[in-house]
């Protein structure tokens, strides 16, 4: 038996890679094509960042963060008022949209089911697709015309509408990621619905919710169109005495205004502001990534 088995001379064949095999060749070519397009997709990002870095960094000095925009042809100055205005309006937007968005998402994921939830979800998706210029016009009609003045409040309101769908969607996703078993455990030891959501589901979902909030903030900080009709722009600092009910500067609108003027000093400032804006977006994205890494589910 044994000798017969050996004498059969089983040939296992070669295990070496054969690049002439059409199947291997096709795979290699397709990998190459996919890789090339990946590089093409990433090129715009790299060019934008590099260009902003080169153009923007030369105009950056400590004074640009604390000084007011200069008149045409005057050296120096900065965009301190626009930076502060952006921070104020994004904060107003977050203060409105974060509580509403999170509570709406809790309702969608924990309490409602069926048709109503689907309609709300659909409406949220539509809202997230509405161009920000339309949201700006809406806020103009609702707030600016009502109070007869451009204001940081109107700007913040417009931004909150921009942020709302992002927060609702990411929070709902975050809550859905918390396993049903954890809810059952909470209910099983005698917690009611509200206690389960507040003390068990929400804490577990907080990193993912934070991710959504920072993404919404990044989106709002960079938006121009929503502010053009609502906050407008000003050369001056946000006016606290007048309770911010005046035109308010923002980084995005400053870039828009100064980029199209023929004055070199204002153009340089626009580049610097654009650079800072991108840095802010980058920073919020990094924060959201850090928050994501703390996720438990």
């Amino acid at each position: 038996m044994t000798s017969e088995f050996i004498s059969e001379q089983f040939d296992p064949g070669s295990l070496k890679k054969n690049t002439k095999d059409p199947r291997t060749l096709f795979g290699l070519i397709m990998s190459g094509i996919a890789g090339t397009f990946m590089v093409m997709a990433i090129i715009p990002l790299i060019i934008i960042l590099l260009y902003l870095l080169i153009q923007g960094i030369s105009s950056i000095s400590p004074s640009v963060f604390i000084e007011l925009p200069p008149p045409p042809m005057v050296e120096g100055g900065g965009f301190g008022n626009a930076l502060l205005g952006t921070v104020i309006m994004v904060s107003i937007g977050a203060l409105i949209s974060v509580p509403i968005g999170i509570l709406a998402a809790i309702f969608l994921s924990e309490y409602s089911g069926g048709q109503i939830a689907n309609w709300i979800r659909f409406a949220t998706n539509v809202l997230s697709g509405v161009p920000s210029i339309i949201i700006g016009v809406f806020a103009f009609g609702a707030i600016v015309l009502t109070f007869k003045t451009y204001s940081a409040w109107a700007g913040g309101f417009a931004l909150s509408i921009l942020m709302l769908p992002i927060i609702i969607r990411t929070t709902e996703e975050a809550l859905k990621l918390v396993p049903q078993e954890v809810r059952q455990a909470s209910v099983g030891i005698g917690a009611n619905d509200f206690q389960t959501v507040l003390f068990v589901v929400m804490p577990a979902a907080i990193p993912a919710i934070l991710t959504g909030v920072t993404l919404a903030i990044a989106r709002a900080a960079g938006d121009t169109a929503a502010l053009l009709f609502t906050a407008l722009f000003t050369q001056f600092w946000p006016n606290w005495e007048n309770k911010l009910a005046e035109p308010t500067a923002s980084l995005a609108v400053l870039v828009y205004n100064f980029a199209i003027v023929p004055f070199k000093n204002q153009q340089a400032l626009a580049w610097a502001a654009a650079f800072i804006l991108v840095l802010l977006v980058l920073l919020t994205s990094i924060i959201s990534r850090l928050a994501t890494s703390k996720r438990q589910f």
Binding site: E181, A185, G190, V200, Q296
Partner: peptide, 30 residues
């Protein structure tokens, strides 16, 4: 009812909290 009749599930499902809080949570809310 659930306070008097407790439940242990098929898949271990501790709360995503500390061991200490896992024990105290039920007591706290009750």
């Amino acid at each position: 009812v659930r306070r008097r009749i407790g439940m242990v599930f098929q898949k271990p499902n501790p709360f995503p909290k500390s061991i200490y809080e896992n024990i105290t949570f039920g007591a706290k809310i009750n």
